[in-house]
Simulated scan of single mutants.
Amino acid sequence: MTHVNSSPVTVLGLGSMGQALAGAFLDAGHPTTVWNRSADKGEQLVARGAVRAASAEEAVRAGDLVVVCLVDYDASDKVLTPLADALAGRVLINLSSDIPLRAREAAAWAKGHSLDYLDGAVMVPVGVVGTARALVFYAGERAVYDKCESALKALGEPATFLGEDHGLAAAYDMAMLDFFYGAMGGLVHAFALARAEGIDGAALAPYLNTIAGFLPAIVERTGTDVHSRVYEGSGANLAMMTASVDHILHTAKGRGLDTGQLVAIKAAADRAIAAGHGPDSWSSIVEVLDER
């Protein structure tokens, strides 16, 4: 993507993702200043025209838009706390990964210093940043987002604004990664079970892709069920599906495999059945997941 936009941008943090973000801004024509705590990163960016700042404050003062991308909010707090004065008059966007509570705390700090602040989350691998397939979430004051929307499209179009609660980007991030890592855990366990039964992983993979092909429709239906709290289970009810989980659990136990994830799944399903959701859809488990 190419954007004719000359607003100067600063990127703080040059891990793999930070470098991808800075590279996308450069590709879009933004004068880009970069800084990293250790000065041995970013040589390729400098070769492409980025300016390496000698300090974080120097980097901040060079940009109208300041993007920070560090390992977590402990790291970003250490960098940003001394820079409140330098950040005045600029838009600060934190794309570090952390929990919604930390995002809201960072927003409160920014508000206390009268700073324009957005929180965000990058939902794609580094190789996708800057392409039309890149999904990047932003949350905070709409007026602040509107100031920098054009520049943010350099990272991915559309630049997805979620709302004015600064914790929303992190909340979406956590929910999506919850699904991803749960699915990845199930995927690896499926291959382990297959291997224990003498099945080659390459032979199983095409059939697992058949199941993966069903997921978009399942995701859409589950979202509707959870929103409406109507769990119609005539096609495949929870009691029937939990019996299948029990069969998998016993197969895995018989082969000496770790069953932690399966035990947790079955325990949640059993609680939902005990609460009267046996005839309902699998989605009804959501009603017993809040343990407060």
Rank of each mutant, 00 (worst) to 15 (best):
L168N: 04
Y181Q: 02
A202P: 01
M184H: 04
F179S: 04
A159S: 12
I211D: 11
C148A: 15
V144L: 06
F191N: 03
A203D: 15
Y145R: 04
A183C: 07
G213R: 07
M174G: 01
D165R: 02
A212I: 11
A183Y: 10
D178F: 08
G167T: 03
A190F: 06
A175P: 11
S150K: 14
R195K: 11
G186Q: 10
G167D: 00
I199V: 13
T210S: 14
G213Q: 08
F179E: 07
D165V: 07
M176W: 12
K147Y: 05
F180M: 12
P206A: 11
A202T: 12
G182C: 08
A196P: 01
Y145W: 13
A171Y: 06
N209R: 13
L155Q: 05
M176I: 15
L193E: 08
G156R: 00
G156F: 03
A194E: 01
F180N: 10
E164C: 05
P206R: 05
Y172H: 08
L168S: 09
D173L: 04
G186D: 04
D178H: 13
A212F: 11
N209Y: 12
A202K: 12
A196Q: 08
F180G: 05
D146A: 15
A205N: 03
S150T: 12
V144G: 07
T160H: 15
D165A: 11
A203P: 06
C148I: 15
L177F: 04
A196I: 02
S150E: 14
L155T: 05
P206Q: 02
V188G: 08
R195C: 00
I211V: 13
F191A: 03
E149M: 11
Y207E: 08
G163H: 03
F180W: 14
A190C: 10
I199M: 13
L193F: 09
D178L: 05
Y181E: 00
A170L: 06
G201R: 00
G198W: 04
D146V: 10
E157A: 15
A194Q: 02
K153E: 13
F180Y: 14
G167P: 01
A183H: 09
M176P: 06
G186Y: 02
G156L: 05
G201N: 01
L204W: 01
G198R: 01
